[in-house]
Each structure stands twice: as structure tokens, then as C-alpha cells.
Design a protein around this nucleic acid. Structure first.
Lengths: 342, 342
DNA sequence: GTCCCGATAGACATCGATGTCAGAAATATT
DNA sequence: AATATTTCTGACATCGATGTCTATCGGGAC
């Protein structure tokens, strides 16, 4: 049979309650008692039953990570970071896809939340920008943290993000520094708050350099490879055509690079390409794509940290729970300055 | 407060045990009682508390999915399928990375297994081929199912796989049918049982067509993009050089396609390329890569089915628990026959 | 009409931990 | 030394479900 708290209590000659105190690191246990209990725990190989614990304490030690599209590299990187931190803190992580377009998402969420009594939820974009979802979680009394939410300013919840506008500004400035004057821009899916931020960064950088933005060179995409391919072909067909294209994410940048291949436009000689996200595909492209690296894993870990903080539940709006992490501009060959070459 | 089984029992005018019977679909409940209870459940929005359930029934309704590399597209596709099936069956899925190279994996596994009392585990390759891991799970008395295990023949556990050898055979035969006589082959990581199977299929198909396999045209890779790129460049530098290259997975096939781009070899005119797995990258490449599609999601779902089967725990070796699913050969432009064109 | 049997339903104990509260021991105060 | 205060510890109820066992119900066989 498995070892229960009673066995430990019996062997150590104390009550189960005292064993419980030791296991949870509570105070009011004399040092030698604590040590004796610990020794017995070690000898017997006792592991608390998570279910009994959750049932009586009303805590689940469970955090859920919700995704719109769990297949993306972004999702898995975040999952990795969150999982690592959960393990360190003796929590468990449940990864759940959540399709807001489906008719049943409210039910699915409620089901998970109520039957599992989640201790917290992490929302990956674009879920983090969905008002109905945030409201539902609030109603269910589940603390949550948003990754890259719509507006951080007056948010009443914790968040983890990078300064996407500034990152886009930096990337644009880099292209300008490389001598580009006419830069095409491919916007992302408007459902993502990131799209507007990245666009704003691009526009600001152009303005700061005193360059006019040719409206016809700003196309709308939806973050997909295909939309990048189409926008890329459209931009390449224009006269004059831009000497550089900044796509709002790497999948679209890859689309642009394929468009260039199809139309025999040399990259980076005749066209520079920049992306955003540092997706796996950016490194696999030819030439490899210059991009912005978000510390996605760290963001996942940071979200777990916030949720586990004992004070979070009571005061989700505190400023200390709004974290901004750094990012890197990764220069590769698609802009002709590859330090990293495949 | 949340709704408990007592509330439902009170409203329906029956005992909690009867509600429990209804919730679990047990027999010995008259139809009108069952309906009355269901109605109350609906009205009150009752959801059983998973912890109380697990505590009293000694079942956890939890299945763990273990991965070596949770970041791969393969992993997420499998996760999606398993998750879907779990949800249908009111189980929960825990996704856990497991690094067999680390010193602590035994502890991590034991911890998860014992504190959570897993009802079952799914092992993705190459974990499914690790003897020590299988032994440990057996010792912990956790039923498990292996995805693509090393040898199915006399295995004492359930498994889900496709006939990889035959799939590789089919792909090779297809290349031969397209007129290729000198076909290069890039083998996968030898730590994966799949590598040998795919290779065997290639060799068998060549033999069946009466074609000699040029040993120098069979290179070893490790399933990575880089190894594909290197092997591709090596093959392209050879004289005579193969007119087609069959890489053991899509990442390596993408490497070959990049090698072709670098060396200005036209695909598919001067070189046909085939991959295996139908990874996302295969569709994003230019031209899109012909490949074998494994029904990875369905495989995940099938694994859950096996684990949930009431008879599985008692007789893991039964033949019915060894499932072989079908696969598709997806023809794309990299072999010049793209029905699917980007 | 009685007896028997399977189907149905409920009472009660139980799973393994933690919360509450009161009593015992140790320490501080006068 | 007696009392007040604080620090420990354990008895017991409790969390919300299911397992076991027994009682009741209804219908068919005799």
C-alpha cells in the first residue's frame, strides 16, 4: 500500500496534524520534532496525496495555461517556462486549448474551473484581450494573469509582456540605419492587440527619421504564412517597390521570403526582410530572418510567479504584478548583417 | 458557494448515492429518477468535485502525456488529440516534459505518479523506446501506452503507431514511379526506432524495383534541420548526384531544400525532395514538400482510448491494445506533382 | 395469496489530508 | 512563587464524493 500521513504520524510518535504542519512548513513546531518527522518521511518515502490535500484545504495547487492555438511555437515555449517554474514550486500545470469561436467555451471553462478548483489561470494572447473571458474568470473567482494584454494602463490584473511598440520601433530604426528609405509594412491580425502596437512602433520610427510612410506600402495580414506570401507578392509587384519589408511576425516574413524566391528577388541584396517573434521558422528560412526575440519561456515562468504570490489573489491590480521583460533584436542574413548564419 | 452533490440530492429528493449513480452512468436507477436528477443537475449547474471523487474512488481521472521534446509540432498535435478525447470522457490530461538525460527524472516521475495517482501514461517517442522508463512505470503500477515503440511484436503493453516501414516503402516507390533511379536517403537519429524502420522501407522498395542502392548516397542525420542541410549539401556535391532525396523527416527535408536553394539547384526540375511527418514546415517550404502524413492527433486520441478501457490495466498485453493507424502520402510540388500548391 | 428474486434506493463508513479550537507545555512577568 | 502570556500539540469535525451493505419495491412463479 501507499504510505499515508497516519503511518508517518505513528512512526514518529506525533499526531497527523503535526505531520501536516511539518509538510507544509508551518510554524509552531519545535525543531527536534520537525526533524524527527522529516526523517520518518524520508525513510518511508511519504508523498502527500494531492487529492486529499486539495479537498480539505480548498487549494488545488493547479494552474491552467489557456491557449487559442496550442500548436504554435509560441505556445510551447511558454508552456515550457511555466512548467519549469511550476515544478520548482510544487504546483502542477494544466494546458488547455480554448476556442473562443466555439459555442461551448464557457462550459468547458466552467467545467475545468469548478471541477478542478484552479488556483490560477494564465491567458496567452489573444485570449488575454478578450473581455468576456476575463469577466467569466472573474465571476468564477479564479485569479489570472494575462500575457500581452490589450492595455496595461488601468488593468485590474497582473500581466507579463514586452514593450512591443518599442521593439517594432527599434527594428524599423535598424532598417533605416541600414539605408532603407522606402519600407513596406505588413500588419498582423487586428484581433491581436500586438498588431496595433507593432504598427505604431513602425510608424513612430519612420516619423522620427523624417521619412514619409507610403500608405500603399502598409498592407494588412493576419499573422499567417499565406497572408505574408500574398502581401509580399503585392508589395514586390509595386513600382516603386520597397527596398525592405517589415512583417509583423515571422510566419508572414517567411511568406515574404518565399514571395521573393518565386519572383527571383535576391534577399538581402534587392530586398531586406524583418520579422517579429523569433519563431523556429525564422531560423529555418533561407536566408535566416532578422527578428525580435521575445523571452517567451521567461514570460511563462513570470506568470506562474505572479499567480503563486500569496498576495496576488487579494490585490490583482497592484503595480508589482505588471511585469515588463526585455527583448532582443536578432540580426540575421535577411537584412544582410547576419552574425548568425545557418 | 459552489453546488455540491448534497444540494442536488436535496432538490431532487433522493440520496447523494443516487445522484452519484446518475453522474457516473451506473445502472439500477429508474428512468424517471435519472431524468429528474439530470434536470436538477442542469438547473443548479452542478459539477462534481474532481478531488473528492478521486479521493474516495482511488481513481484520479488523470492521464499524463510524457514528452522528450514538448516543443515539436508532433508533440502539440498529439496533445491536441489526446486532450480532445480526454475531454469527451471527462478525464484530464497532464502534459509533462521528461528529460531522460537529467539526473532527476526518476524522482520527477515518482513525484508526479504518487502524489497525483495517475490513471495512465502516454509515452511519445523516443521515450516509448526507453526500457528504464517502462520498467519504472511498471514498478509504479501505472498503466501506459507507447506511441511508436521499438518493437511491437512481443510487447507487453499497448501501443499506437503507423507502419512506418511501409510508409517509407510507399514513398520510395512513388519516387521510383516518377522516374528516379538514383535516390539519396538521409537517415534519422538512431536513438529513434523510427529511423531504422524508415530506412528499411527505403531499402526494401529499392530492392523491389531492382535498383542498386549507392551506399554513398545514404547519409546519416539526426532529424534536425541542420543535419538535413549538411547532408543535402554533401549529396548535391557528389558526382553523379542523386535526382531525388528522401529525408527521414520534414525538418531534414527542409534542410535539403535550403541546400538546393543555396546551390541553385531547381526543385523539382533538377532535384525531387521527399520528407516524412507532414510537419508544419513542410507546407511552408518553397516549394512545399511531399511527405507522409501521420495521423498524430488520432494517435493521441487512440492512446487515451486504450488507457481508459476498463480491461486494459488487467491485461496490457492483449492484442486489441496494439493499434495500427493509417497514413497518407501527401504529394506536393517538391516532387513536381503538387495537388496542393501554396 | 404467498414466496422469491432481481432491480432499485438509501444509510453509513470511508478515502487522506487540513481547519478549528481547546488544552498542555514553555516562557515571561510581577 | 504565582500568574500571565506565548508557543506548541492533538482531538475532532470536515471537505465531497464513492464503496459496501442492507432494506424496500415490484412482478412473476407457484
Amino acid at each position: 500500500m501507499t504510505v499515508t500521513i497516519k503511518d508517518v504520524a505513528a512512526h514518529a510518535g506525533v499526531s497527523t496534524k503535526t505531520v501536516s504542519r511539518v509538510m507544509n512548513g508551518e510554524q509552531h513546531v519545535r525543531t527536534h520534532v520537525r526533524e524527527a518527522v522529516m526523517r520518518v518521511v524520508g525513510e518511508l518515502g511519504y508523498r502527500p496525496n494531492a487529492y486529499a490535500r486539495s479537498l480539505s484545504s480548498a487549494r488545488s495547487y493547479l494552474i491552467a495555461l489557456f491557449f487559442d492555438d496550442p500548436a504554435s511555437g509560441y505556445a510551447t515555449a511558454m508552456q515550457r517556462g511555466a512548467l519549469m517554474r511550476c515544478r520548482e514550486r510544487h504546483y502542477h500545470l494544466l494546458v488547455q486549448p480554448l476556442d473562443l469561436a466555439s459555442a461551448t467555451w464557457v462550459d468547458e471553462l466552467t467545467e475545468t474551473a469548478q471541477s478542478l478548483r484552479l488556483d490560477g489561470a494564465i491567458l496567452a494572447p489573444p485570449l488575454s484581450q478578450n473581455g468576456a473571458l476575463l469577466a467569466k474568470l472573474t465571476a468564477l473567482q479564479i485569479p489570472f494573469v494575462c500575457i500581452s494584454p490589450a492595455d496595461t494602463g488601468r488593468a485590474a490584473f497582473g500581466s507579463v509582456e514586452i514593450d512591443e511598440e518599442r521593439a517594432a520601433y527599434d527594428m524599423t530604426a535598424r532598417l533605416i540605419a541600414l539605408g532603407h528609405r522606402d519600407i513596406g509594412f505588413i500588419e498582423g491580425d487586428r484581433a491581436h492587440a500586438s498588431s496595433a502596437k507593432r504598427r505604431a512602433g513602425f510608424v513612430a520610427a519612420m516619423a522620427a527619421a523624417g521619412l514619409a510612410v507610403d500608405e500603399r506600402h502598409m498592407l494588412r495580414g493576419d499573422f499567417s504564412f499565406r497572408s505574408g506570401l500574398e502581401a509580399g507578392e503585392a508589395l514586390l509587384a509595386m513600382r516603386p517597390r520597397p527596398s525592405a519589408i517589415f512583417a509583423s511576425n515571422d510566419d508572414m516574413a517567411l511568406g515574404v521570403s518565399v514571395a521573393a524566391l518565386k519572383h527571383h528577388v535576391a534577399v538581402p541584396a534587392d530586398l531586406a526582410i524583418a520579422g517579429f517573434d523569433d519563431a523556429a521558422t525564422a531560423r529555418l528560412a533561407w536566408p535566416p530572418i532578422t527578428t525580435i526575440r521575445q523571452p517567451v519561456s521567461e514570460m511563462g515562468a513570470a506568470a506562474v510567479d505572479i499567480l503563486i504570490d500569496p498576495g496576488y489573489r487579494a490585490n490583482m491590480a497592484a503595480a508589482e504584478y505588471r511585469r515588463r521583460l526585455g527583448y532582443d533584436l536578432v540580426a540575421r542574413d535577411s537584412t544582410g548583417e547576419g552574425a548568425e548564419t545557418a
